[in-house]
Nucleic acid binder design. Structure first.
Length: 880
RNA sequence: GGACGGUUAGCUCAGUUGGUUAGAGCUACUGGUUUACACCCAGUGGGUCGUAGGUUCGAGUCCUACACCGUCUACCA
C-alpha cells in the first residue's frame, strides 16, 4: 500500500475521477424502476462562459442530484444550452462588422451560417467548464434549444396556441430597441433612474389669440407627433378650454384639439398632457379612446423621419436639443428644470428603448388561474417560501406577451402568407405543401418562447413511441428547479403555464413541471455590488478551481449561501473550503498510517469489528448519529449552508480535535470506530465535495464501487448502532464535561503565561460527587492538558492561581517568577454568577412561572442554579 | 407609489413551534510543533440582538410604529 501524499492535490485527482465517472457512465439515467429524481438545468447561453452565478446554481443542483443518487434514486439531470437570440446575434454582428460586413449584406442564409459556425466554435465551452466543477449531469441527454426535435416542441406550442386563439397579431406600441432593431418583451427592458430635464412650453390657443396652455414634457423631440392636448375633466383651470384647439409650434397650419381624459394627473407639471400616441404607452391608450390619429416621427433607428420636419434626419437625442433650441428662439419655452425619472433601457444594447408602433405577434397567457391555484394549493413549493407572493403578484398583473423579434437567429415564426393574397395565412409546424406560393413571416420568436417548453422538449414529450411515453411519465415532473430569482417571470412561471396548457389530459397535480422551486441568492462582491462583467468584479470560476480545487470552491461557496439570501462573495471563504479538504485528507491519511486492510471494508465488516467500545468511542458515534439525522433534515429543508457547516463542525471539533487526540493518548485502539465515522462522513460530504470524497473512499478501501452507490438508510443504520452502543447518557455527559474540564485547565495554564507545552504541576480540591470520575480519567487529563501531576489536597495554598470547575477547584504550582493570582478576575466571575443565580431564584420564586413553565424548563433552571451556587461558593473560598 | 427582504461580535452569518447563562467561522491578540494536517493546534478578547412601545410568568424570536440598507415592480407625461 502506497502512503497517501502529504497534501491533497486536486488537479490530478479531479481529472482522474472525471475520466472514471465518464467511463462507468455514473451519471447516465438508469431507468431501472427505482424511484426517479429529475432536475432540469437552467440552460445557459450557448456561447456563454461560466460565472459565479452558474457556479453556485449548479453546485446546488449537484448536491441535490448526488444526494439523491446516494439514497439509491434513479437520477436524471438534464443539461442544455439556450441559443440566446439577441445575445448571440449581436455578438456575431459585432464580429462581422470588423470585417466590414453586416447581416444585411450577407443575407439571411449566409448570416445564419456564420452564427452557426460561431456556435460550433464557442458553444459548449460552458459544458467543459461545468464538468470541471464536477457536476453530475447526464451529458448524453444534453439539449440545445435549436435541436430539431426540441424545435418541434417550440413550433408546436406556437401552432397550438394559435389554433386555440391565444396567439394573435396586432399593431401595438412595443418596446423597441433602436440598436438591435427589434421588439422586446417588458421583461427585457430595464428601468433605470436617470437625470433629465422637464421642459415646460406653450401651446397657443387658436380660438383665443394671445392665450396659451403650458405643457410639461421630458420628450420634446416627439412634439411633431402630438395629436392632442389632454387635461383632466374636473380640472377647473382648463374646463372651459376643452373642445378648443391649439396650434402646433413647428407647423402653424396644423391644429390639434384639447380633450379631457381621466388619466391626466392634475398635480403633475401644468396639469396638461401632450398626446403622442405613436411614441408613448399612456398616450397610445388615450389615442385609442379618443380615436386620434397616430403620427410616427421616429424611424426604426430612432431617427426623425419626414413627418418630423424640420428636424428630419436627426438622431432622437440630437433632435431633443434642436427642438428645445428652436422653441427657445420662438420664445415658447417657459421653464426647464432638472428632473430625475425612470427610463426603460434595452437589456442587451443598454440604450433607452423607444415605444414604437409596430405589427407584432402576441400571446395572451392561458391557464393563469390554474397557475395561481398550483401555488395556493401547495402543488408547487417555493424555497424560500416568500417568493410565492411575488409569483402570485405577477400572475395577477399579467400582460400579453410580445413574442416576435425582428431578428434572424432563432425559431422562425411558423406562419406563411399567400403570395397572391397575403391576408391568407398558413400556420403549421411543417409549413405549406406548396412553399413556392407562400412567404414565411420573417420574424423569429422570443428566446423565452423557446425555453418555456424546456421540461417538455428535454423529455421529448412529442415523441409518440411507447418507450418515449413511458420515459416521459417516469421522469416528469422534476423534483426541484434551481434558479436565480431574476428569471422567475421570464422562465419559471412561463414553464409552469406552458406545462399546464400542453398537458391538459393530466390531472392538475401532474401538470406542474417541478414540485419544488429553489431560488438562489445573487452572488455579490465583498462590498455588496452585483457581480457583473462591466464592473469587472466577477472572478473567473476556473481560476478559482485551479487555486482552491473544485471541492474547495464548492464547499466555500455553499457554506456562505444561506437559503435565498444574497451572497457576499469573498475568496476567504474558498480558502476555508480548501483548508477543510486538506484537513479531511489528512485525517484519512492518519487513519491509513495506522494500517488499512488490503481487502474492502464493508459496512457489515465495520459493524462486526465494533467491540469493547470506550466512553470516548460511544461519545463519537453518538455525535455521528446525531449529525447524520440533522444533516438529513437540513438537506430536506434545502438548508445547504447550515448542513455543510454542521458536517465541518462535527468533523473538526469532535473527531479531529477531540477524538483523535484522545486516541493518541490511549493505548487501546478500535479502528472500526474511525472507519465507521469516516465512512459516514465521506458519504455525507460527497454531494458537496465529490472528488476528494471519492478518492478517499477508495484510499480507505471502503468499497470497490463508487461512493455514490453507498446507500443511505438512516433507520437501519440507527438500529444497528443502537445494538452496539450502551446508550448510557451519563457516560456521554461525562465526556462532554471532560472536554470542558480539559479546556478550563489549559486556560488556567495560559492565563498564567505558561506555554502549552510546559509541563507543570497542579493540585485539586475535588467535589466529592466527581471524585471517582476524576480518578478514572486522570491519566487522560494529564496528557491532554500537559501536566505532570495533579495532587489531591484538602486545603489550597493561598497564593496559588486557581480555577473553579464543575469537578473541583484546581490550582497551579508556579515557579517564583511565573504568573500571579488574579483576584479581580475571580471577583468578576463571582459577580456574573451572582447575576445568573439571582435571575434563576427570581424565576423559581415567581408562582406564575412555577405554574406555567413546562417541567423540563423548571428542572433546567434548578440544575443550573445548583451548579452556579456550587461554583460561587468555591470561588468565594478563594477570596476569603 | 406598491410589494418583498434585511438590520445579532470588527467582518460574514446561525439562532426551527416564545423557555435554562445569545452561538459559529473569519479577523485581532497570546502561546505552541507531541503518531496526520501551519491549508495545523491551544487559549484570550469582543454583542444592552436597528430604535421606541406592547403582549407574556418568560421575547433575538410574536404584535404595532419608526429609522436605515437592499431587491423587485409601476411609473407623473
Amino acid at each position: 500500500m502506497v502512503l497517501m501524499e502529504k497534501t491533497y492535490m486536486p488537479e490530478e485527482i479531479e481529472k482522474k475521477w472525471n475520466a472514471l465517472w465518464k467511463e462507468a457512465h455514473c451519471f447516465d439515467v438508469k431507468h431501472d424502476g427505482k424511484p426517479t429524481f429529475t432536475v432540469f438545468m437552467p440552460p445557459p447561453n450557448v456561447t456563454g462562459i461560466l460565472h459565479m452565478g452558474h457556479t453556485l446554481n449548479n453546485s446546488i443542483q449537484d448536491v441535490l442530484c448526488r444526494w439523491a443518487r446516494i439514497q439509491g434514486k434513479d437520477v436524471l439531470w438534464i443539461p442544455g444550452t439556450d441559443h440566446a437570440g439577441i445575445a448571440t446575434q449581436s455578438k456575431v454582428e459585432k464580429v462581422i462588422k470588423k470585417e466590414g460586413l453586416s447581416r444585411q449584406k450577407l443575407g439571411r442564409k449566409a448570416f445564419l451560417e456564420r452564427v452557426e459556425a460561431w456556435r460550433k466554435e464557442h458553444g459548449n465551452i460552458i459544458f467543459e467548464q461545468l464538468k470541471r466543477l464536477g457536476v453530475s449531469c447526464d451529458w448524453s441527454r444534453a439539449t440545445y434549444t435549436l435541436d430539431p426535435d426540441y424545435s418541434k416542441h417550440v413550433l408546436t406550442a406556437f401552432v397550438k396556441l394559435y389554433e386555440r386563439g391565444y396567439v394573435y397579431k396586432g399593431k401595438r406600441l412595443v418596446n423597441w430597441c433602436p440598436i438591435s432593431q427589434t421588439a422586446l418583451s417588458d421583461e427585457e427592458v430595464i428601468m433605470k433612474q436617470v437625470p433629465a430635464f422637464l421642459y415646460t412650453f406653450r401651446y397657443n390657443i387658436v380660438e383665443k389669440p394671445g392665450q396659451f396652455i403650458a405643457v410639461a414634457t421630458t420628450r420634446p423631440e416627439t412634439i411633431m407627433g402630438d395629436v392632442a392636448l389632454a387635461v383632466h375633466p374636473q380640472d377647473d383651470r382648463y374646463k372651459d378650454l376643452v373642445g378648443l384647439h391649439v396650434q402646433c409650434p413647428f407647423d402653424q397650419t396644423r391644429t390639434i384639439p384639447i380633450i379631457a381624459d381621466e388619466v391626466v394627473e392634475r398635480e403633475f407639471g401644468t396639469g396638461a398632457l401632450k398626446i403622442t400616441p405613436a411614441h408613448d404607452p399612456i398616450d397610445f391608450a388615450v389615442g385609442q379612446r379618443h380615436a386620434l390619429p397616430f403620427i410616427e416621427v421616429l424611424d426604426e433607428r430612432g431617427i426623425v423621419n419626414n413627418q418630423g420636419a424640420p428636424f428630419q434626419g436627426m438622431d432622437r437625442f440630437e433632435a431633443r436639443k434642436a427642438v428645445v433650441e428652436a422653441l427657445q428662439e420662438k420664445g415658447f419655452i417657459i421653464e426647464i428644470k432638472p428632473y430625475n425619472h425612470a427610463v426603460g433601457y434595452s437589456e442587451r444594447a443598454d440604450v433607452p428603448i423607444e415605444p414604437r408602433l409596430s405589427e407584432q405577434w402576441f400571446v395572451r397567457y392561458p391557464k393563469v388561474e390554474e397557475a395561481k391555484a398550483l401555488a395556493e394549493k401547495e402543488l408547487v413549493h417555493f424555497w424560500p417560501k416568500r417568493w410565492i407572493k411575488t409569483y402570485l403578484h405577477w400572475l395577477s398583473n399579467i400582460q400579453d406577451w410580445c413574442i416576435s423579434r425582428q431578428l434572424w437567429w432563432g425559431h422562425r415564426i411558423p406562419v406563411w402568407y399567400r403570395k397572391d393574397d397575403p391576408s391568407v395565412l398558413h400556420v403549421s409546424v411543417e409549413g405549406p405543401a406548396d412553399p413556392e406560393n407562400w412567404d414565411q413571416d420573417p420574424d423569429v420568436m422570443d428566446t423565452w418562447f423557446s425555453s418555456w417548453v424546456w421540461p417538455l422538449g428535454t423529455l421529448h414529450y412529442l415523441d409518440n413511441t411507447e418507450k418515449a411515453k413511458r420515459f416521459f411519465n417516469d421522469y416528469f415532473p422534476a423534483h426541484t428547479l434551481v434558479s436565480g430569482p431574476d428569471i422567475l417571470f421570464f422562465w419559471i412561471t412561463r414553464m409552469i403555464i406552458a406545462s399546464l396548457e400542453f398537458l391538459e389530459d393530466r390531472p392538475l397535480a401532474q401538470r406542474v413541471p417541478f414540485k419544488n422551486i429553489y431560488l438562489t441568492g445573487i452572488v455579490r462582491d465583498a462590498i455588496g455590488r452585483k457581480m457583473s462583467k462591466s464592473l469587472g468584479n466577477s472572478p473567473d470560476p476556473l481560476v478559482l478551481i485551479q487555486q482552491f480545487g473544485a471541492d474547495g470552491v464548492r464547499i466555500g461557496l455553499l457554506s456562505i449561501a444561506p437559503q435565498g439570501q444574497d451572497i457576499r462573495f469573498d475568496e476567504r471563504f474558498l480558502v476555508q473550503g480548501r483548508n477543510f479538504c486538506t484537513k479531511l485528507w489528512n485525517a484519512c491519511r492518519f487513519r491509513q498510517m495506522q494500517g488499512v486492510e488490503a481487502a474492502y471494508t464493508s459496512l457489515d465488516d465495520i459493524f462486526e469489528k465494533l467491540e469493547n467500545l470506550s466512553v470516548y468511542d460511544e461519545h463519537l458515534l453518538l455525535s455521528l448519529q446525531k449529525t447524520m439525522l440533522e444533516y438529513d433534515n437540513l438537506l430536506h429543508a434545502y438548508s445547504f449552508s447550515t448542513a455543510i457547516k454542521l458536517l465541518q463542525q462535527c468533523f473538526k471539533n469532535v473527531f479531529c480535535d477531540w477524538y483523535l487526540e484522545v486516541q493518541k493518548n490511549e493505548s487501546r485502539h478500535c479502528h472500526a470506530v474511525q472507519d465507521l465515522f469516516l465512512r459516514q462522513m465521506l458519504i455525507m460530504l460527497n454531494p458537496y465535495a465529490p472528488y476528494i470524497t471519492e478518492e478517499l473512499w477508495h484510499q480507505l478501501h471502503l468499497s470497490e464501487s463508487f461512493i455514490q452507490s453507498a446507500g443511505w438508510d438512516l433507520d437501519a443504520f440507527n438500529q444497528r448502532l443502537s445494538k452496539v452502543l450502551s446508550q448510557n447518557q451519563e457516560d456521554i455527559d461525562t465526556v462532554e464535561q471532560l472536554r470542558t474540564l480539559v479546556s478550563e485547565l489549559r486556560s488556567l495554564k495560559a492565563a498564567n503565561n505558561l506555554a502549552s507545552n510546559k509541563q507543570t504541576t497542579m493540585c485539586v480540591n475535588l467535589e466529592p460527587a466527581y471524585s471517582a470520575l476524576f480518578k478514572k480519567h486522570k491519566d487522560l487529563i494529564l496528557k491532554m492538558v500537559g501536566v505532570q501531576a495533579i495532587d489531591e489536597v484538602s486545603e489550597m495554598p493561598e497564593d496559588m492561581p486557581k480555577i473553579v470547575t464543575l469537578w473541583g477547584t484546581f490550582g497551579i504550582v508556579l515557579m517564583k517568577e511565573e504568573g500571579s493570582n488574579d483576584m479581580a478576575n475571580i471577583q468578576k466571575e463571582i459577580d456574573t454568577l451572582t447575576q445568573h443565580i439571582l435571575a434563576a431564584e427570581q424565576k423559581l420564586a415567581n408562582p406564575r412561572f412555577v405554574e406555567c413553565a413546562p417541567q423540563g424548563v423548571k428542572d433546567g433552571v434548578k440544575k443550573l442554579l445548583k451548579e452556579n451556587i456550587q461554583k460561587r461558593e468555591a470561588l468565594k473560598k478563594l477570596l476569603a
